[in-house]
Write a protein that binds this DNA or RNA. Structure first.
Lengths: 199, 199
DNA sequence: CTTGAACAAGACAGGTCTGTCTGTCAACAT
DNA sequence: ATGTTGACAGACAGACCTGTCTTGTTCAAG
């Protein structure tokens, strides 16, 4: 089972599912589209067609729903990335294909940046721990690919690539995918050729 | 007159100033520290020691205050950057000194990322125009330095550097200045040496 | 001295927010 | 048949939000 960009965008109410799933899917869509604070509990309850007490039976507070949303978002985003790049065999190709995969994401309808960057920016220093956990997981995944590709100092290379990715996400969010695509490709190419030449 | 990092952090109530200045300075501090939506009008009014009608006489709505805050933030941040790098003579030194200046900012007490990235993330697609205007002004300033330094294709180089800067801001905000410093320096060095070698 | 502008303090309205509570109903197991 | 469980519907409380309005004070210009 792989996840597609539609899963990242969030689907509709899905009335055949149980109450918890409907609430979580509605929150998944609204939290990403409008932000955490701008999305009220009442709207999530209304759009998911659920009673208020059913909501509070499954999620003790709004914060618990936000945490569940971030957990789900993390799982789906990482699964989408692996599915998008999974057919590639070598770690070197995996790294080279990263900018193209991200560009697909930037151009997907409903793209509004990274849910974890946005959530961290909104919640400030007491943001949910998942916001930084997601980035550490992505950094670890990239570092693994660098190590498997035989690049020297894979931690440093991964840190450089992650910083470029974060910048591309922000640029795509504020100015559109075209503003991020070529700079991201160039920074990737420079970093990888620099690391590859040193080994 | 130059601006320091203290100005970027925002000063206290300053009771000797007039009502509008006190409101704007308080908003400047609270909006950056807590976010736009999390900061209520009542708190700004209370902390600035101003009557509610005095506030609404100078700012017709909260949105107008947000716009004024972003305008002031833009002016101070750009002035701080020019003051921090102004003593450098050549455009090439100016570009080379950018990562160090940004690192100073990342390590300043109260640093919470870029007010314009955060504001854009919070407000979504209908964010105040100043959020993207600030980034375009910074891109134009960097491109000017690239052109004055004689680099070929200064627009592309500036786009690469700006993307790295955005990434460094986000990384510093989420993981601390140490996570951003070295990757930003390396990406700058690679990009500038790549551009310099081509001319 | 008078007049008017700016300001302080705070009540108030109308809306929204989270979270609690009371009913009612259908499905299902014992 | 009867009790249990989960869910729907919606009222309600208490807090907070933006924005308006009233009242009284200070101060400076005419």
């Amino acid at each position: 089972m792989t996840f597609t960009l539609d899963d990242l965008a969030g689907s509709g109410p899905l009335p055949e599912h149980d109450a918890r799933t409907r609430v979580l899917e509605t929150a998944y869509r609204l939290f990403y589209r409008q932000g955490l604070r701008a999305t009220g509990i009442d709207r999530i309850i209304a759009e998911s067609g659920v009673a208020k007490m059913s909501f509070y039976r499954h999620f003790p507070s709004k914060q618990a729903l936000i945490d569940a949303y971030l957990d789900l978002r993390h799982a789906r985003w990482m699964a989408w990335l692996e599915g998008r790049l999974g057919k590639l065999s070598s770690p070197r190709d995996w790294l080279a294909a990263l900018p193209g995969a991200l560009d697909d994401w930037f151009r997907a309808p409903g793209f509004r940046g990274c849910a974890f960057i946005n959530g961290h920016a909104e919640a400030g220093p007491d943001a949910p721990a998942m916001t930084v956990m997601h980035k550490r997981a992505l950094a670890a995944r990239i570092e693994r690919a660098c190590a498997e590709a035989g690049l020297p100092q894979p931690g440093e290379v991964a840190a450089d690539l992650l910083l470029a990715i974060e910048g591309a996400i922000v640029r795509a969010q504020m100015e559109g995918a075209d503003a991020a695509q070529q700079p991201l490709r160039r920074l990737f190419a420079r970093t990888l050729s620099d690391a590859g030449g040193k080994q």
